[in-house]
Design a binder for these strands. Sequence first.
DNA 1: AGGCTTAACGAAAACGGTTTCGTGTTAATA
DNA 2: TATTAACACGAAACCGTTTTCGTTAAGCCT
Lengths: 343, 343
Amino acid sequence: MKKKITLKQIAKELEVSISTVSKALKNSEEISADTKEKIQAFAKFYNYKPNNVAISLKNKRTKNIGVIIPDIVHHFFTTVFRGIEQYANKQGYNVIVCVSDDSFDREVINMEMLANGSVDGFIMSLSAGTQRKNDFNHLKEITDQGIPLVLFDRTTDKIDCDKVLIDDREGAFKAVQKFIKNGRKKIALVTTENYFSVSNAREAGYREALANADIEIDEHRILKLPNMEVDENAIHEFFNSNRIDAVLCVNEIFAIHCMNLVQKKGMRIPEDISFIGFTDGILSKYANPGLTAIAQHGVEMGEVAAKMLIEKVEYESDDEEEEETYQTKIIESTIIERGSTIN
Amino acid sequence: MKKKITLKQIAKELEVSISTVSKALKNSEEISADTKEKIQAFAKFYNYKPNNVAISLKNKRTKNIGVIIPDIVHHFFTTVFRGIEQYANKQGYNVIVCVSDDSFDREVINMEMLANGSVDGFIMSLSAGTQRKNDFNHLKEITDQGIPLVLFDRTTDKIDCDKVLIDDREGAFKAVQKFIKNGRKKIALVTTENYFSVSNAREAGYREALANADIEIDEHRILKLPNMEVDENAIHEFFNSNRIDAVLCVNEIFAIHCMNLVQKKGMRIPEDISFIGFTDGILSKYANPGLTAIAQHGVEMGEVAAKMLIEKVEYESDDEEEEETYQTKIIESTIIERGSTIN
DNA sequence: AGGCTTAACGAAAACGGTTTCGTGTTAATA
DNA sequence: TATTAACACGAAACCGTTTTCGTTAAGCCT
């Protein structure tokens, strides 16, 4: 077992000073060619690599970024994470992930774990708990300390920082518009309770598109499910008591459930009833028929978030006091057409 | 913007030495009650938290663990990661993830990025590139340096280290046995080319179960697809030219594709043909009919891997030289029964 | 009063680097 | 020959902690 070698050890072995070794390895002009060669050869032989922790301490920069998300076993977040990791790695940053599990407390704990020098900045999507509690002090503390923060998808306007959003409203709008173009009039929405800003935005887009086409909004055609443990009976009841020819679902799971159910009832997709679901995930792709989906481009979102964060991180270190200026970027969603709609 | 306060600043402000502050905050007996109270109050007021990087340097322990996986947008890996993160966090460790994207080079680069002090140990699943290249020098270097390493799922026996495996052979065996118990005789296997140790193990289990039941193995009933971009024609051809009443698939995607296809051909699942697929993911759950699956218990796997790693990490630091002893743990898979088989 | 213990605190080394600012030697110049 | 500039290297500070080992002064004992 050969432990990593340090500058000090090299210096002692070669009977020079630590500074000489450090400079030689950086190819400094100060050091003679002879000495440099000798030191570099020795270092290479022993596979010397500077210790990241020491460098972090010296530079006051860790080259780590912290990502806190509600869930990792979730296609959308995973996708965004992929984008973050990809871009960050390319820029020489590593990514530390913490999962809040949609709990306010865990989110706070995770932030505190990382905030004491472990990372140069944060990228996060708020936990359901935090959104429900409407308490953002932990974020405030971070930004007050001058630590860069980028919020994505599940954000809040109570905090001043960079943000990356999906045009949920616009996505729902386009989906409903597509239904209307296909001649559908009895358009339903299957959504969650209004905890999340996303569901609200999607519902808004749904309403707007209908209003825009002078279709009266029938509140009975809006089904709000309390959580992700889908209640089959509620869906059953919903489709029995309403005449519906198109359904917009705020997530894949709801869509798949509804599709399976209406097919069992003998309805044909897309002839009798069309479906569009939010978030183009694996389920949409492999559903039968394929589910036309509003794709969120998570990877792009992650890349954008990482880019914004790293820019702030590298800027901050140069300039001390400066007017902070924050931006909000919108990632456009697109409709991926599949068999569940008439194209 | 109030930057984090340091011991030095507290010391200067209160006109005591740094050591006194440090001790006071640790409630050392050496410091008088008066002084302690004063310092603690001051520290609390300015929300003092020790700098993690400095502590890491001092302790030569980062409390970070590195996870390198081939892919993160992949249900199984995500699940394992969840288990790792959960356990690690509970023990006060953070997790740095790097995605190798199934490339040998990226795997090597990622390891090198983290190996210079950024993490205390590694948990990884080998990239396809690495398995194909059969080159494990980067792992050897890590273990030679005494850095703990735990391999999971996609491993190699060329490296001595802790391992966590899934009983792929046994899982396939049980699946085929179930088919046989249901009276099926013409049992097919849909798998990948033999790059991965997992596919090999699964194929072995398949063959063993058939041999065990004195069913002759018909090589035509084994379909090997070159990659995940499923070739519909190959599947079509396969089901047309073979009489088959049960199919074991080495992953969900293959299973879903095959199920959709045979259903289009008018066959009924599970009456005419049964399906079992590896890795109980989201697709199996929401397939129509639901796909009976061999569940891998990724979360448990991750927890076990993290536990093994952290034990090694904390042990190493105590004891210097010691007989290294490595273990291999097997996570048992279980069959989740759904509509694609007769139960 | 002199010697002792003990309480309360500070100085300094250490972790592993980087970087600024000397400093001694040599060779070129006046 | 004395002065100086260039060269090659080293000492030391610094990043923020922890921890060992003094050091000082007060209080006690004989």
